[in-house]
């Protein structure tokens, strides 16, 4: 039960970030590495604000905005300064490492004694003792659901249509008398806002901020997106956003299996990337196999 709970909790948190990666990788076709910096950015913002005594729910909004600003930064580097997509992300990710340290003040900032969205007086006042272990997973699910529904709704707006068009056929966006650069920047802003929101929630769940939590975020995000969308490719009634969430849970389950097989937790990142590689190879094979058939 504890293990399942752990998978759900981690899976939900990373699914929030994966929704962002879905926007950049699947919709915009932009391999955006800045999420490795914006995930901990959300965490750093949350931790430092919580230490200052801010309402934990407000930190979600501030982190979301901070992520959006970082995303806009990546977009501006790419669109205005004409740096290649991959490099723009790397530049932003690297720069954010220092920014995150500045915001948090140090590489490791505990917030155990502070109120978080999962642990606060208000909740303590009415929740029965037995329900407490489910509070985190419940709240995570609600935040994730809100994010997913908002994203689904956005993709059906005119602006959302344009975002999809930008990834599908840039030339058409220009033909529609719209600046494709601006559309890309919008997409990157939303994507990184989601990543930072995930980071903010992650820190509140764990009770501390750690500068290295961001490393490999993009791999987890990409893995979730690729597993989810390729598994449910032919199931038309499942929305891609739902598929991405399922992908995230499945991926976390795989990683936890691997760790339980006795791999030391120091090997976590190694497991993460090897799993990702396997998934990439398999989804590529599946695609090619279908083409040949």
């Amino acid at each position: 039960m504890t293990i399942l709970l752990g998978i759900l909790e981690e899976g939900f948190v990373y699914a929030i970030m994966a929704l962002g990666v879905y926007i950049t990788y699947k919709i915009l076709d932009f391999p955006d590495l800045s999420v490795d910096g914006t995930f901990p950015l959300g965490g750093a913002v949350a931790a430092s604000l919580l230490c200052k005594g801010m309402n934990p729910w407000l930190t979600l909004i501030v982190s979301f905005l901070a992520g959006a600003i970082a995303g806009i930064g990546t977009g501006l580097i790419h669109v205005k300064l004409k740096v290649r997509d991959l490099l723009s992300g790397i530049i932003m990710m690297t720069a954010l490492y220092s920014v995150n340290l500045k915001i948090a003040g140090k590489a490791n900032l505990p917030i155990f004694s502070r109120e978080t969205i999962f642990e606060n007086e208000w909740l303590e006042s009415f929740l029965p003792e037995g329900a407490k272990r489910y509070v985190t997973v419940m709240f995570l699910f609600l935040i994730l659901l809100a994010g997913k529904l908002a994203l689904d709704a956005y993709l059906k707006t005119r602006s959302g249509y344009l975002l999809r068009a930008a990834g599908d056929n840039e030339i058409l966006v220009t033909s529609l008398a719209k600046d494709k650069g601006f559309v890309k920047i919008t997409g990157l802003a939303i994507a990184n806002a989601f990543a930072a929101l995930a980071g903010c929630v992650y820190v509140q769940m764990n009770g501390f901020f750690e500068i290295s939590t961001g490393t490999g975020t993009i791999v987890i995000g990409l893995a979730s997106v690729i597993i989810g969308t390729s598994l449910f490719k032919n199931v038309s009634f499942i929305k891609p956003t739902t598929a991405v969430i399922a992908g995230s849970l499945l991926y976390k389950w795989c990683v936890s299996r691997a760790i339980r097989f006795g791999l030391p937790s120091n090997d976590l990142k190694l497991v993460t990337s090897v799993l990702f590689l396997i998934i990439l190879v398999f989804s590529e094979r599946k695609r090619r196999g279908k083409k040949n058939a």
Binding site: Y154, K156, T157, R158, S159, G160, Y161, L162, R164, A165, D168, L172, S175, L176, A177, K178
Partner: peptide, 23 residues
């Protein structure tokens, strides 16, 4: 990757604002 209806809607909105109204 967009449907015929979505493509037509995009084109219909050319010159207008691509805001948060229904696509």
């Amino acid at each position: 990757n967009m449907t015929i209806l979505e493509n037509m809607s995009l084109a219909d909105n050319k010159g207008g604002r691509f805001n948060l109204r229904r696509g």
